[in-house]
């Protein structure tokens, strides 16, 4: 019997569906999809409740505070909440809900988690500097044919390809 949890959509099918979804998103909102912006707004909100004065004085974080609108009342925040629900739905239908640390058998869980933390940290910094991550800057940026989207895509994937050699032990 084949393992149901390993059955994924054909990537071209998934790509066309998300492409159509992006088209719909552009048609309705005039903008594409995103992800890192939601994390940024969450960080700004958390900092604003812990250290309000510090956050208001911060050159970067104060850009995302306004008197009219709460930073959590934001398109990307709701979109990412939806992503969590949609991914959970897909995972539960396919029987993939499971608490685990996924890693190559050649490395320990601990090593995987240390690298996951470092990777997330770098992605956090890079997505702010690059004004968006793989979803918002690269994918949606490419779909809208912005030069920025293509620079972002080539820079993210180019670097990862070049650096892949040095981290191969973690994956293969």
């Amino acid at each position: 019997m084949t393992d149901r949890s390993k059955k994924y959509f054909n990537p071209y099918f998934g790509g066309v569906m998300v492409g159509l979804l992006m088209l719909l998103t552009f048609y309705i909102t005039g903008r594409g999809l995103g992800a890192s912006g939601a994390v940024k707004n969450t960080v700004v909100t958390a900092m604003h409740s812990i250290a309000p004065e510090h956050t208001e004085e911060s050159t970067y974080m104060s850009r995302f505070l306004s008197d009219d609108e709460h930073p959590m009342n934001n398109w990307l925040v709701f979109e990412v909440l939806g992503v969590i629900a949609g991914a959970f739905l897909s995972g539960s239908l396919a029987g993939r809900l499971k608490l685990k640390v996924e890693h190559s058998p050649k490395i320990t869980s601990r090593r995987r988690l240390v690298f996951a933390l470092l990777g997330g940290l770098l992605f956090g910094i890079g997505s702010q500097l690059g004004r968006g991550c793989t979803s918002g800057a690269a994918l949606s940026g490419m779909a809208s044919l912005s030069t920025a989207g293509f620079i972002s895509m080539m820079s993210i994937f180019g670097t990862a390809f070049i650096a892949a050699y040095f981290f191969r032990k973690n994956w293969i």
């Binding site: 992503v83 996951a116 991550c133």
Partner: peptide, 28 residues
């Protein structure tokens, strides 16, 4: 920013959107 994200990608194995998906199905 892209270079920093690329390093984050190969070290962490995720990008922001995909990590949210992994997190939703219980990937620690």
């Amino acid at each position: 920013g892209g270079v920093i994200m690329g390093l984050g990608f190969i070290m962490g194995g995720f990008c922001p959107g995909t990590s949210v998906c992994g997190a939703a199905i219980g990937k620690i």
